Structures are given as structure tokens and as C-alpha cells.
Computed example of a mutant assay.
Amino acid sequence: MVTEFPEPTAPATGRGEVFLRYLDYFRETVVAKVSALAEGEVRRSILPSGWTPLELVKHLRHVELRWIEWGFEGRDVGDPWADRRGDRWYVAPEETREDLLAALRAQGAHTRAVVEGTDLAAVGAPGERWEGAEPASLERVLFHLLQEYARHLGHLDIVAELAGGPVGE
């Protein structure tokens, strides 16, 4: 799926649609960049911090899970930190690129359904996600997700270029 950059001049039905367009764009750009890398490159780190492109994909899926399902909706998601082992992102050897990318897209579809069915001013359900603070509004959660995606996509841009993958947006 090719998602066009959400130009600020493109008409939108509201702020929720703007958030969704940017999230979809960032998510699909992550999918495209990771899909274009050679199999050996998606499980190899070229950075001192040690993360791999597949670990980034799994992390982003769990970021959405933690903020939308576990946080905003207050749902039991099992282990919300399943993208980590200790203080590192982790992908098991049996986890495939295809499965991780499908999980990322499915999480995005869930986020879309929540945003389309909820007022942006709605406040999240109380729960562990908020670590004792008052739950945030959906709009604040979405703003946080956008910065997560934008920041990590920038990281992936550099890693993909260094690995001989796609360059640019």
C-alpha cells in the first residue's frame, strides 16, 4: 500500500483525520523501508545501540498497543512490554518480517477504528498505563504517537540508507 504524504493543504474532515493520515503515512513508510531491506539487514544492527529494523517494527506496534489499547481503552493486553527483553527491544528468531509487519498494520487498523469512533477530547480509561497520573485525552495520545513514529522513522531512514536500502521519503 502506498500512502501519499498528507500535505497540510489537503482538505480533511477534522483533526482526527489529520492524525490518521500522518500515522498511516509514517506506518506505511516504515513498512516500505523494512520490506525493501535484504533479509540479513532486517535482523542486523549497524548502530552502537544495537537495535535492528525488525526490533523497531515490533516496538512501534507495541507503542500503539500500549497507548491506544492498554492506555486509552484500558484493555488487558497481556504483556504490554512484549517488545522488550530487559532494557532492549527484542525479536525472537522465529518471528518473521511478514508477521511483524502484518501485526503493525493490524495495530494501525485498530487505532484507526478507535479514532474514527471516538471524540478526540475523550479521556482515556484509568489504569496502569498512566503510572498514577490522570489519563490523557485521545488527542494527546495521538500527538504522542505521531512524535514516536516521526522520530523512529528518521532513525530507520538512516539505518536503511547505511544498509543499502531505500533513500529518501
Rank of each mutant, 00 (worst) to 15 (best):
V114Q: 03
P11M: 03
D76G: 09
W51A: 08
A125R: 07
L23N: 11
R112Y: 00
I46L: 14
Q107I: 05
F26L: 06
Y22A: 06
L146W: 05
A160V: 09
R27Q: 08
H110E: 06
A121L: 12
A121K: 14
R21T: 14
V2H: 10
Q107S: 14
L23H: 15
G78S: 08
T111N: 04
Y25P: 05
R15I: 15
E73F: 00
A36K: 11
V34R: 01
G168E: 03
R21Q: 12
F5D: 02
A113I: 05
V63G: 01
W70S: 03
R84P: 00
W51L: 04
L54F: 10
K33S: 07
W130K: 10
L104T: 12
E7R: 13
G165P: 02
E169K: 09
G86S: 07
S137G: 07
A10V: 15
E128A: 15
A150F: 08
T111I: 13
A102D: 14
L20E: 14
A103C: 02
L65M: 12
V30S: 02
A163N: 06
E55N: 11
E94G: 01
P6W: 10
D119G: 14
R84L: 05
E4T: 14
E28D: 15
E116T: 10
F5P: 03
G40T: 12
L100Y: 02
L104G: 10
R97V: 11
L56V: 09
R21C: 04
V63I: 13
H59K: 14
A109D: 09
V34N: 03
R97K: 15
V34A: 00
V114S: 02
V42A: 04
R88Y: 07
T52F: 08
E98A: 15
A82R: 07
D76K: 10
A32M: 06
A36V: 11
V77Y: 01
L65H: 04
V2Y: 01
L156F: 06
P53W: 10
R97I: 07
A150C: 07
A12Q: 12
H62P: 00
A102S: 14
D76Q: 13
R44P: 08
D76I: 11
H62W: 10
A121S: 15
G86C: 08
W67Y: 13
L56R: 06
E94Q: 14
D87V: 11
L120Q: 11
R66V: 09
L20S: 14
A10I: 13
K33Q: 06
H155T: 12
H144P: 01
L156P: 11
E4V: 09
V57F: 10
S45Q: 05
V91H: 00
E28M: 09
G14Y: 05
G164A: 01
V123R: 15
E73L: 15
H59W: 13
Q107L: 08
L142V: 13
G78C: 13
E98K: 08
Y90R: 11
P80K: 06
T13H: 02
V42L: 05
G127W: 09
D157H: 13
G14P: 06
G40P: 12
G154P: 08
T13N: 01
V115L: 02
Y22G: 00
H62N: 13
S49Q: 09
V18F: 00
A109I: 00
F72S: 08
R129F: 15
A133D: 10
E139M: 03
P80D: 03
W67C: 08
V31C: 03
A122Q: 05
V34T: 01
S137N: 04
